[in-house]
Amino acid sequence: MLVKTNAIVLSVIKYGESSLIARLLTENYGLRSYMLKGVRSPGKKKIRPGYFQPFTQLEVVASHKDKGSLETLREVRLAHHYQSLQTDIVKSSLVMFLAEVVQYGVQETDDDPDLYDFIIRAADWLDENEDMASFHIVFMLHLTRFLGFYPDFSNEGAPVFDLVEGELVENTLNPSASGDLLDILSSLMEAGFENMSSVRMNRGQRVRMLNMLVEYYQIHLHGFRKPKSLDILQSVFH
Rank of each mutant, 00 (worst) to 15 (best):
L70Q: 01
E71M: 05
L73E: 00
R74M: 11
E75N: 11
V76W: 05
V76F: 03
V76R: 04
V76E: 06
A79R: 04
A79G: 13
H80L: 14
H80K: 13
H81C: 13
H81F: 15
H81D: 15
Y82S: 08
L85A: 08
L85T: 04
T87Y: 09
D88W: 09
D88L: 10
I89S: 15
V90L: 14
V90I: 15
V90H: 11
K91I: 02
K91T: 03
S92M: 12
L94N: 06
L94W: 03
V95S: 01
F97Q: 01
A99F: 08
E100Q: 10
E100I: 06
E100C: 05
V102M: 05
V102N: 01
V102I: 13
Q103T: 13
G105C: 10
Q107W: 12
Q107P: 06
E108S: 09
E108P: 04
E108F: 11
D114G: 04
L115H: 00
D117E: 12
I119P: 03
I120W: 02
I120Y: 01
R121G: 07
R121V: 07
A123V: 05
D124P: 07
D127L: 03
E130Q: 15
D131C: 08
S134C: 07
S134G: 04
S134N: 07
F135Q: 01
H136R: 03
F139K: 05
L141C: 07
L141K: 04
L141H: 04
L141I: 12
L143V: 08
T144P: 09
F146W: 07
F146Q: 04
F146R: 08
L147T: 00
G148D: 10
F149I: 07
F149Y: 03
F149T: 02
F153D: 05
S154Y: 14
N155G: 09
N155H: 12
E156Y: 14
G157K: 09
G157E: 05
A158R: 12
A158T: 10
P159R: 04
V160W: 05
V160Y: 07
F161D: 01
F161K: 04
D162N: 06
D162M: 02
L163G: 09
L163V: 12
V164R: 10
E165W: 02
E165P: 03
E167V: 09
E167N: 08
E167L: 07
E167Q: 11
L168F: 05
V169L: 02
E170Q: 12
N171E: 12
L173Q: 11
N174L: 02
N174I: 06
P175R: 00
P175Q: 00
A177T: 03
A177N: 01
S178H: 05
G179K: 07
L181F: 01
D183G: 13
